[in-house]
Design a binder for these strands. Structure first.
Lengths: 153, 153
DNA sequence: TTAAGTGCAAAAGCTTTGCGGGTAG
DNA sequence: CTACCCGCAAAGCTTTTGCACTTAA
């Protein structure tokens, strides 16, 4: 995430705090920065670990609370994946994902063709769609290489 | 799920058991049928509840083990969603999802236009894509109605 | 016969909650 | 000042594991 986008997001955070009567505490600020600096799709606990480097006194509970807060404000999102632990995502714009069916690796994938996908009519089911994302499933490079090595030893 | 598809899946299960040297036990059979009969995206615990109706002696542990087994065999899949609990899906064919950003409702969505999406080139990242799915995010009917009621009381 | 599968109990891991005290606005 | 927020400890869920016993093939 480039410095400009990062700064803009932090400004948005301050604005949303003012608008919603929320407090801008040291802890929340550190937690937000930790998510923004994490490229992958971190769990609350992974964020907590990062946060501890900046301030060893921030509790796990506060991290859980702040992250849910940020999601509600639309500052970050939750990643949609098949695992059993919540993962957060600093990205709020349209992007897509690759999922490895063997090792569950879950990474971002950029493609302008996919971005231009035409959203179908969902009025029949009463849904008002605002956003979408394509998930591509398959086998990642390292898993394919592992398979090849096993098959021809 | 129509009776024909259901039967075919159970036959596939028997074939996969033979091919992999796995046993066809009463428990696994009941658990498989419970997933096939569940239209939504059930958790392991929801499946366990259903299973208990058919046989009150099947343990939760066995349900967890069997479901992971079925996923590995490709008999069922795991649903990709933002929650903190694993959800299973009896569907293994191409289909799409609607996610309500307010209440987290997560439902299937059929659209042949989306089915024909052209899979982009992922060779640069080393992924071999076999499958895809589109997730449409927005607000569901009942959440929109709740909002409207709150705004104009 | 024998390796896969099962149930139980216990452990492990993730997330939320209640509460007393702290602090930003 | 006061409403929001914090840290702690404890509870609440979900999921996995070790082990002795059972059973399908």
């Amino acid at each position: 995430m480039n410095a400009e986008t990062r700064l803009a997001r932090i400004e948005t955070y301050h604005r949303l705090c003012r608008e919603h009567g929320l407090r801008n505490t040291i802890q929340k600020r550190i937690i937000l920065e930790a998510v923004l600096d994490h490229e992958a799709h971190p769990t609350a606990d992974q964020i907590h670990e990062l946060v501890l480097r900046a301030n060893p006194d921030v509790s796990r509970t506060t991290v859980y609370r702040a992250l849910e807060n940020f999601v509600r404000l639309g500052l970050i999102t939750k990643a949609c994946h098949p695992g059993k632990v919540v993962r957060y995502d600093r990205r709020v714009d349209i992007h897509h994902h690759l999922l490895c069916l063997r090792c569950n690796r879950f990474v971002d994938f950029e493609d302008h063709g996919l971005d231009r996908l035409e959203i179908p009519d969902t009025s029949a089911v009463g849904f008002e769609v605002s956003d979408f994302s394509v998930q591509l499933r398959g086998i990642c490079r390292s898993c394919r290489e592992t398979t090849r090595r096993e098959e021809s030893p």
